Computed example of a mutant assay.
Amino acid sequence: MTSSNFPKAERLLRRPEFLQFNEGASKLHTQYFLVLLKRNEGTGTRVGFTASKKVGNAVVRNSIKRRLREFYRQNKSLFISADINIVAKKGADVLDFHQISTELAAAFGRLRKKYA
């Protein structure tokens, strides 16, 4: 397998995993995304993606989440070992993949400096 895959072990899948961010998670706001980060017990990087109905209809929300998954798959080296949830804000639907990549790469660069 290549390193550009996205196996289930690297995903946040269940509701309790997403609810853990309500308690003590670090937040980083960008213009179109909110990055929630919580250190885990050495289980590696696990990532989840959230887009509420404020962002758009189901087609729009799924499109944003697909682009976010692709960003993660292509840029795993930017992510630190933690549980991370990327939440799309209103207006994120107008971004193309390059704009998403630029905004999130800058955000994860700041996170690496803060937590490295």
Rank of each mutant, 00 (worst) to 15 (best):
S26C: 04
V94L: 13
K54W: 02
A88P: 01
I100Q: 01
R39G: 02
L13F: 06
V60A: 05
I64P: 02
G56L: 14
G91C: 10
N40I: 05
R69M: 09
G24P: 00
A51G: 02
I84G: 02
Y72W: 12
K90A: 08
S101A: 11
I86Q: 09
T43S: 07
A88D: 02
K114Y: 08
S101K: 15
A58F: 07
R110S: 12
T2I: 10
S77R: 10
A82M: 09
S52T: 15
G42I: 12
A105V: 06
T2Q: 09
E41A: 14
R11F: 04
N57H: 14
R66V: 12
K54H: 04
F33L: 07
V55E: 00
F18V: 11
R69W: 04
R73W: 03
E103S: 05
N85Y: 01
I80F: 06
A107Y: 03
P16D: 06
K76E: 04
A88R: 12
K76M: 10
L95V: 10
Y32A: 03
K27N: 06
K54P: 00
N62A: 13
L19Q: 11
G91R: 13
K8T: 14
K8Q: 14
S26K: 14
E41Y: 11
R61P: 00
K76I: 13
L28F: 15
A116S: 15
L111A: 15
V47W: 00
S4M: 13
R112D: 03
K76T: 11
L37Q: 08
F6V: 10
K76R: 15
R11I: 04
V59M: 13
T102I: 10
E41T: 12
F97Q: 15
F6N: 03
G24L: 10
F21I: 09
Q20S: 08
S101E: 09
E41W: 09
T45P: 01
